[in-house]
């Protein structure tokens, strides 16, 4: 991991409150899908902010973010050419098993970010289906999807694109039809991840989820982002920033984290 001042290469509005930012990539270590970096939008905001990496090449890093508070608002006001303090790569990415032939990616809303990066990686080596749900058609960022061979299933809450309803219903329909992947990767709002866990248990498919939580350091130092996990018959504590943010869904104690992830927006 490194701390660098990186030049902003591109800043683009994607629709209501959503933005795409590209930074120059000068990190010596390559990011893997699921890993994140922290940015410091302004010296007047005390803590750094974590962002999943949505695409990574040798020269650039893509970040998809939603404007939710003071820090992300400042971020939206940045222009290409300006520099920003970036720290990464942080966390552990999605586990990728080379033996696996077929995986499903299930994304909800802005949670699509790390899965876009994963898709780019997996579609070259596996049969991939991508399930993507959002509030409405303008929030389905189709332009961000890479060219390549994979199936795309879409759902919107208002039915303006794809099926009307939650993306998890789309996943379940496909499972009911008899199709079954070897692994599911999922990222999105907490209720969606919980629903994916339920489906994973029901159909006996391992589900990996990317969790979002408030962080202070992002480095594994402060223990502010600790969550409880089942491990065998005992419960252990893990840091989302350092041991995650990717976890096996069936190991997460969902009830215990429900109360806090709802407050992961704010300043």
């Amino acid at each position: 991991m490194e701390i660098l001042s990186l030049k902003i290469l591109r800043m683009q509005s994607l629709g209501p409150d959503h933005y795409w930012m590209e930074l120059e990539n000068r990190f010596k270590k390559a990011f893997s899908p699921g890993q994140f970096l922290t940015l410091r939008p302004s010296p007047h905001i005390f803590l750094r902010r974590p962002f999943s990496v949505a695409s990574a090449s040798k020269t650039s890093l893509g970040i998809l973010f939603r404007k939710v508070g003071a820090a992300t608002t400042i971020l939206t006001e940045k222009n290409p050419g300006q520099e920003i303090s970036a720290l990464g790569p942080l966390g552990r990415g999605f586990p990728i098993d080379p033996e696996i032939k077929q995986s499903w990616l299930v994304a909800g809303g802005t949670g699509v970010a790390p899965l876009l990066f994963l898709l780019e990686r997996l579609m070259k080596i596996q049969k991939v289906s991508f399930f993507y749900g959002a509030g409405c058609q303008p929030l389905l960022f189709r332009d961000l999807f890479p060219q390549g061979k994979y199936r795309l299933f879409l759902a919107t809450d208002d039915g303006s694109c794809g099926i009307a309803g939650p993306v998890t219903a789309l996943v379940e329909k496909q499972l009911q039809s008899g199709e079954k992947p070897e692994v599911i990767y999922s990222s999105g709002p907490l209720p969606m991840l919980q629903a994916m866990n339920t489906l994973g248990l029901k159909y006996k498919i391992p589900v990996y989820v990317s969790l979002e939580i408030r962080m202070a350091c992002g480095l594994g130092l402060c223990l502010g982002c600790v969550i409880p996990l089942h491990q065998g018959s005992s419960i252990i504590l893990k840091r989302v920033c350092h041991d995650g943010p990717i976890f096996l869904a069936r190991e997460v104690l969902w009830k215990e984290i429900t109360t806090f992830t709802r407050i992961s927006n704010g300043l």
Binding site: F46, R214, C222, G224, T259
Partner: peptide
């Protein structure tokens, strides 16, 4: 010690409230 349950962190305009509980 397991420390305190979530939420453990809250940022303020120029500071940070923590309640880790000496995990």
């Amino acid at each position: 010690w397991p420390g305190n349950p979530q939420p453990r962190l809250w940022e303020t305009p120029s500071g940070l409230i923590n309640s880790i509980g000496l995990q």
